[in-house]
């Protein structure tokens, strides 16, 4: 290998310096969450900056879950229900539809496919008011299922499942038919077991989107019993008196599960991110 010129070395070193500085800036908000979540109110508001509390106030988390006005426990429970529900139902329904569009010969299925694609272009700005009206009519206001259901149906997931199943080898399907499998058997026994990677990628994306969603839960869940964890966070800001230590502890609790998911399932999430730009 040829020796690197001084110029190249400088370029490499300066690249590391710039990226490291940026990394510090990008991690700063996480540091602030942890720092403030472990401090008392007076420590947080002190004009003398302390980088880290000598005696961390772990008790903040206890008082957060015991604060009857915070609804932290309900928020977490609702968010978990909604995120897992969205994940499971969206993967099931989208893969079923994707399979039908890709593998079951049917006159007019292309028209249905393009109609489904068309809904991709409808922004939530135009649907959230009438969807609220719809929910008010069918009794979905202030319910967990009312928050959950609209997020289940994703043209985007259906589209990607269809593309995925189009590439599924014909030979395997033929072999299945010879073994006496019908359409349901082929889907259940052959396609689903081979869809784990795409389901992980799209499923995590659906989970994260659902957990972090804000506008729709705000519109539909006005009663504390239907608040998601994001709404709970937001109400800390609108409360009469702001309990800073609980506010930051709540932020830590709301963010932590997703950080864990991201760190452990990074490969799938990056796969999902690529999907969403239209790449396969």
């Amino acid at each position: 290998m040829r020796a690197r010129s001084t110029q190249e070395k400088i370029a490499v070193v300066s690249r590391y310096i710039v990226l490291s500085l940026l990394a510090v800036i990008f991690l700063l908000p996480f540091y602030l969450i942890v720092r403030n979540a472990l401090m008392s109110d007076s420590q947080i508001t002190s004009s003398h900056w302390v980088w880290f509390p000598v005696h961390p106030h772990w008790h903040n988390f206890v008082s957060l879950f015991h604060d009857p006005d915070a609804f932290m426990y309900e928020g977490l429970k609702n968010s978990a229900l909604i995120a897992f529900g969205t994940l499971i139902l969206q993967m099931l329904f989208s893969s079923m539809a994707g399979y039908a569009l890709a593998r079951i010969p049917m006159r007019g299925s292309n028209i249905i496919f393009f109609l489904i694609l068309g809904t991709l272009m409808i922004p939530s700005a135009v649907t959230f008011v009438p969807t609220f009206a719809l929910m008010a009519t069918i009794g979905g206001v202030n319910t967990v299922w009312g928050i959950l259901t609209p997020g289940v149906f994703s043209a985007f997931s259906i589209f990607l499942f269809r593309q995925f199943y189009l590439r599924f080898p014909d030979e395997i399907e033929e072999a299945g038919k010879l073994d006496g499998l019908g359409y349901f058997g082929i889907y259940w026994r052959l396609l689903l077991p081979n869809s784990v990677s795409i389901m992980m990628a799209l499923g995590i994306l659906a989970f994260v989107g659902s957990w972090n969603n804000f506008l729709w839960p705000l519109v539909i869940g006005q009663d504390p019993s239907a608040w998601t964890v994001q709404i709970v966070l937001s109400t800390f800001l609108t409360a009469q008196t702001v309990h800073l230590h609980e506010l930051f502890a709540a932020t830590a609790v709301a963010v932590a599960p997703l950080i864990v998911i991201f760190l452990f399932m990074q490969r799938y999430i990056m796969e999902g991110a690529k999907f969403s730009s239209g790449k396969e």
Binding site: A23, P29, L32, N212, T251, A254, L258, F262, L263
Partner: peptide, 24 residues
Amino acid sequence: FRTVFFIPTAVSYAAASLIWRMSL
């Protein structure tokens, strides 16, 4: 570096707004 720049994607707008408004 990839992870560090990507990880904020995990945070919700509500949570980030809270940190930006109340701390940063």
